[in-house]
Nucleic acid binder design. Structure first.
Length: 512
RNA sequence: CGGGGUGUAGCGCAGCUUGGCUAGCGCGCUUGGUUCGGGACCAAGAGGUCGCGGGUUCAAAUCCCGCCGCCCCGACCA
C-alpha cells in the first residue's frame, strides 16, 4: 500500500508498516515460506476461536447446522455456472497429479500419474455443495437446508497481506437451499444482520449494511449484501457478505423439487461468509501505537496478573497473593494469565501484555499487600481533550481495595467493550462527509486529504464507476439500506457525476 | 507478467562505490552476579555454506555472467 498521503491519524503516516508492527508485537501471525500464505500463531488463532464461538452460537440460534464438504472441486463442477467460473478463473490453484517419482535421483511429479480431470482447490464451495444438495432434495419437505461449514479456501491472489488477503485463508461459509425466493431473500438479509450484530456487539466495529453494485457482486449472485467498516486510515474494509443466488446454482447443478402444488421448480439459494480477515479489521479499527487493542469479548486473556517483588521473602508473599487473585478471577469465569516468569522486569511484562491487547492488568507488589489493595490498569481509555500520554497512563491506573477491585473487573470489561464501539463510531462520524458536488468530492479524495466515507448521490453507469475508481482510487462500497444513512444524508438528489436524478445516496471510499 | 528495490547469525542492519589482515554492530539467546512499582546493568559465552551456480584474480561478501527467493508499485481481490 502507498504510504500515504491520506493519513487521518498520526500513525497512519505509515499505516501498512504500523499494521505489520502490531501483528508482530502482538505475536498474532507471520509470513510462511509458502508464497502468499500465513502462519497464524497461537495468540492470533485464539482470537479466531473466540470469533468462531460467537458466530457459531448465532448460526445455531438461527437454525443452522455445521457440515463439511471436500477441499477438491472437479474442474467440470466449477465451470458449470458460467459467471461463477469466470469470476474465480484467475485465482485457482489446481491439482493435476497424484504421485511423485524419483527420476535420475531427483524426486519429482510422476508424469504418468496425471489425473483424468484436474481438481481445483476450493476458492469457495458453492459448486461442490450444490452437486451434493442435488441428491438431498426432492420435495419441498426436504427444504430448507441450512448448513454452514468452517473451512479453509485458496484464492491465488497476486498480492497478499497478513489477514487481509492471503492465498489460503480460514473462513465460514453458509450454504442454504429454499423453496421460495422470498424465503431465500429473507435468509440473505437475516445472515447479514447476524454479521452486523457480531461486528458491532462483539468486535466493536461499527458497520454500514448495504448491497453491492452489480459490478461488485459475487460471481454468480443476483444480489450481494455486505457490511463495511472504516479503518483508522479512513479506508473501508468489507467485513462480511451475504449473497442471494437465486436459482443460478440450482439450475447449473440441476437441483429441482416438487412444491406444495406438485409443480417442479428449481431451488433458491443463498451463501454467506466471513473470514480471518475480521482479525485484520479488529487490528485496524482499535489498535494503537502500543500495539493490539482487543474488545473484551474477543480477548483470549481478560486479565494479566503481574507480581512485583525485590527480595525472596517478598516474592513468596506476593506470589501467594497473586495466585489467590488468579483463582478468584478464574472462579468468576474470566480468562486470566499469571505472569510469574523469572528474570523479566515488571515493566517489560506490562509492555508485552499491552502489545498483546489484554484488556486489564493487575499489578501486585508489597505495597498492595500492606494496604490490602490491588492496582488495576486498563488497556485503553477514551481520550480526554489535551491529554498527554503521561496523563493518560496515570489515569488508566486505579488502586482499589482488594474485594472491590475483584468485583470491578467484569463491569470494567463491559464498559471497555462499550467504549471501544463508541470510540470507533465517533471516529467514523468524524471522517464521514455528505458530498454534493464533484469539486467537494475531488477535495475530499485528493491525494493529500485524509479521505474517509463519502455519501454521494449516484446515478452513473458501470463505466462511470470505473472512471471514478481510476481517477480517485475509490469505489462504491455499497448502496446502503435506507436506515443506514446518517440523517443529513437522507433524501433525493442529483448524481454527483452525471447530474441525473437519484433517489438515494451511496457510500464511496477507498478500500482494502 | 512489466517497473523499482533487496538478499550478510534467530530478528534488524553495516561493510560492496575503490577486492586485502581473524566478516562486524544492535536486539535476542546461554551462564554467573547485581537488579526488580513502566522496556535493567555488568562480565563471560554460543551462534555464519555472506541467496545459489559459474567466471575474473595471488586474493571475492565486494568485480562480471546466469539463476533463485523476498519486498514495494501496476493488473486481480474476502
Amino acid at each position: 500500500m502507498a504510504t500515504n498521503n491520506n493519513a487521518v491519524t498520526p500513525r497512519a503516516q505509515d499505516y501498512a508498516q504500523w499494521y505489520l508492527d502490531v501483528i508482530k508485537r502482538a505475536d498474532l501471525a507471520e509470513h510462511s515460506p509458502v508464497r502468499g500464505c500465513m502462519v497464524i500463531k497461537p495468540h492470533g488463532y485464539a482470537i479466531w476461536e473466540k470469533m468462531q464461538r460467537e458466530l457459531d452460537d448465532r448460526f445455531k440460534a438461527t437454525g443452522h447446522v455445521n457440515a463439511y464438504f471436500p477441499l477438491f472441486i472437479p474442474l467440470s463442477f466449477l465451470t458449470k455456472e458460467e459467471q461463477h467460473a469466470a469470476g474465480f478463473a484467475k485465482e485457482c490453484a489446481v491439482v493435476t497429479h497424484h504421485r511423485l517419482k524419483s527420476i535420475d535421483g531427483e524426486v519429482g511429479v510422476d508424469p504418468e500419474s496425471k489425473l483424468e480431470e484436474p481438481l481445483v482447490i476450493r476458492p469457495t464451495s458453492e459448486t461442490i455443495i450444490w452437486a451434493q444438495y442435488k441428491n438431498w432434495i426432492q420435495s419441498y419437505r426436504d427444504l430448507p437446508i441450512l448448513i454452514n461449514q468452517w473451512a479453509n479456501v485458496v484464492r491465488w491472489e497476486m498480492r497478499t497481506r497478513l489477514f487481509l488477503r492471503t492465498a489460503e485463508f480460514l473462513w465460514q461459509e453458509g450454504h442454504t437451499a429454499h423453496a421460495s425466493e422470498a424465503e431465500a431473500l429473507e435468509e440473505t438479509y437475516r445472515m447479514l444482520d447476524v454479521y452486523a450484530d457480531f461486528a458491532e456487539n462483539v468486535a466493536a466495529v461499527p458497520v454500514i449494511k448495504g448491497k453491492k453494485t452489480p459490478g461488485e457482486r459475487f460471481a454468480g449472485a443476483l444480489e450481494t449484501l455486505c457490511i463495511e467498516g472504516m479503518m483508522q486510515d479512513g479506508r473501508a474494509l468489507q467485513m462480511g457478505t451475504s449473497h442471494y443466488l437465486g436459482q443460478n446454482f440450482a439450475k447449473s447443478s440441476d437441483v429441482t423439487f416438487l412444491n406444495k402444488d406438485g409443480k417442479r421448480d428449481y431451488v433458491y439459494a443463498t451463501s454467506w461468509g466471513v473470514s480471518t480477515r475480521l482479525i485484520g479489521a479488529l487490528i485496524m479499527t482499535h489498535s494503537d501505537d502500543t500495539g493490539l487493542v482487543l474488545p473484551p469479548k474477543l480477548a483470549p486473556i481478560h486479565v494479566a496478573v503481574v507480581p512485583i517483588f525485590k527480595t525472596d521473602a517478598e516474592k513468596i508473599k506476593v506470589l501467594e497473593e497473586a495466585s489467590k487473585v488468579f483463582s478468584e478471577l478464574k472462579a468468576q469465569g474470566l480468562s486470566v494469565k499469571l505472569d510469574d516468569r523469572d528474570g523479566i522486569m515488571p515493566g517489560a511484562k506490562y509492555y508485552e501484555w499491552e502489545a498483546k491487547g489484554v484488556p486489564i492488568r493487575i499489578e501486585i507488589g508489597p505495597k498492595d499487600l500492606e494496604k490490602g489493595s490491588l492496582c488495576l490498569v486498563r488497556r485503553f481509555l477514551l481520550e480526554k481533550e489535551g491529554e498527554t500520554e503521561q496523563d493518560q497512563r496515570k489515569r488508566r491506573k486505579t488502586f482499589l481495595p482488594r474485594t472491590q477491585a475483584l468485583a470491578s473487573i467484569k463491569p470494567t470489561l463491559d464498559t471497555m467493550q462499550r467504549e471501544l464501539l463508541e470510540r470507533a463510531k465517533v471516529f467514523r462520524t468524524k471522517h464521514s462527509r455528505v458530498l454534493n458536488t464533484m469539486e467537494e468530492f475531488e477535495r475530499f479524495f485528493a491525494k493529500d486529504a485524509p479521505g474517509g466515507f463519502a455519501w454521494v448521490h449516484w446515478a452513473g453507469t458501470h463505466e462511470h464507476e470505473d472512471e471514478i475508481a481510476k481517477r480517485f482510487e475509490t469505489t462504491i462500497r455499497c448502496i446502503p439500506f435506507p436506515d443506514q444513512l446518517p440523517d443529513e444524508a437522507k433524501g433525493e438528489g442529483r448524481c454527483i457525476l452525471t447530474g441525473g436524478a437519484s433517489s438515494q445516496r451511496v457510500l464511496v471510499a477507498r478500500a482494502y
